[in-house]
Simulated assay, not measured.
Amino acid sequence: MRSNGGLGLMLTQAALCLVLIATGVDLVRAHGELTQALERQRQNDALITRIDGQLDSLARGTQQLADGGNAHAAQIIAALAQNGVHINTRPHGR
């Protein structure tokens, strides 16, 4: 009978080891996925920053044209203002 008890204990320990190993593997996989997601987010942030700068520059240029008397630019500025878009005439980041 004693040998059966030892076998049961060994099987329980083996099962526990397998569960811990599987959990560890899942954690390593999840860490890798999170690292990749973070890198994609950094790339997206850089792209968004670049696009934001381009849009700011475009809006400032349109505002300058409108201030200079360009009727089409003035219409664009008026339409933007109607939609709640206000143009900061200072360069981005200042």
Rank of each mutant, 00 (worst) to 15 (best):
Ala81Arg: 14
Gly8Asn: 07
Thr49His: 05
Leu18Lys: 04
Asp67Tyr: 07
Thr49Asn: 06
Thr23Tyr: 00
Arg90Phe: 11
Thr89Gly: 03
Leu58Asp: 05
Ala81Phe: 11
Thr62Gln: 00
Ala59His: 01
Val85Leu: 06
Asn70Phe: 01
Asp45His: 08
Arg94Leu: 09
Ala46Tyr: 06
Ala46Cys: 02
Ser3Gly: 09
Val28Ser: 04
Leu27Lys: 07
Ser57Asn: 09
Arg40Gln: 15
Gln43Tyr: 02
Leu20Ser: 06
Gly8Lys: 13
Gly61Ser: 09
Gln41Lys: 04
Ala73Thr: 03
Gly53Ser: 06
Gly68His: 05
Gly6His: 08
Gln36Thr: 10
Cys17Ser: 09
Asn88Ala: 06
Val28Gln: 00
Arg29Cys: 10
Leu47Met: 11
Ala37Pro: 01
His31Trp: 13
Gln13Ser: 13
Arg40Met: 11
Ser57Gln: 11
His86Lys: 11
Arg90Asp: 11
His86Thr: 12
His72Pro: 10
Gly5His: 13
Ala71Phe: 12
Gln36Phe: 07
His72Leu: 15
Glu39Asp: 10
Leu47Trp: 12
Gly61Tyr: 00
Ile76Ala: 01
Glu33Pro: 00
Ile48Trp: 03
Ala46Ile: 02
Leu58His: 07
Ala37Phe: 08
Asp26Phe: 04
Ala78Asn: 00
Ile48Cys: 00
Ala14Ser: 13
Ala81Met: 09
Asn88Cys: 06
Asn4Ile: 15
Leu16Thr: 15
Ile76Trp: 06
Ala14Thr: 13
Thr12Asp: 07
Ser3Leu: 09
His31Glu: 12
Leu38His: 10
Ser3Arg: 01
Arg42Lys: 02
Pro91Gln: 03
Ala37Ile: 13
Ile77Leu: 01
Ile48Asn: 00
Gly32Thr: 07
Gly61Cys: 10
Asp26Glu: 12
Leu58Arg: 08
Thr12Ser: 07
Gly53Met: 09
Asn83Lys: 14
Leu55Ile: 15
Thr89Tyr: 01
Ala71Val: 14
Gln64Val: 14
Met10Leu: 03
Asp45Tyr: 07
Gln64Trp: 03
Glu33Tyr: 08
Leu80Asp: 02
Ala71Met: 12
Asp56Met: 09
Thr35Leu: 12
Leu20Gln: 06
Asp67Ser: 04
Ile21Tyr: 02
Asp56Lys: 06
Val28Phe: 05
His92Tyr: 12
Gly32Ile: 12
Leu38Ala: 15
Leu18Pro: 03
Asn88Tyr: 03
Ala30Cys: 05
Ala30Asn: 06
Leu80Gln: 05
Gln75Ala: 13
Ala37Glu: 04
Gly68Met: 05
Met10Asp: 09
Met1Thr: 15
Asn44Arg: 05
Met1Glu: 13
Ala79Lys: 14
Asn70Cys: 08
Glu39Ala: 10
Pro91Thr: 07
Ala79Trp: 10
Asn88His: 02
Leu34Val: 15
Ile77Cys: 01
Gly69Gln: 04
Ala59Arg: 02
Met10Pro: 02
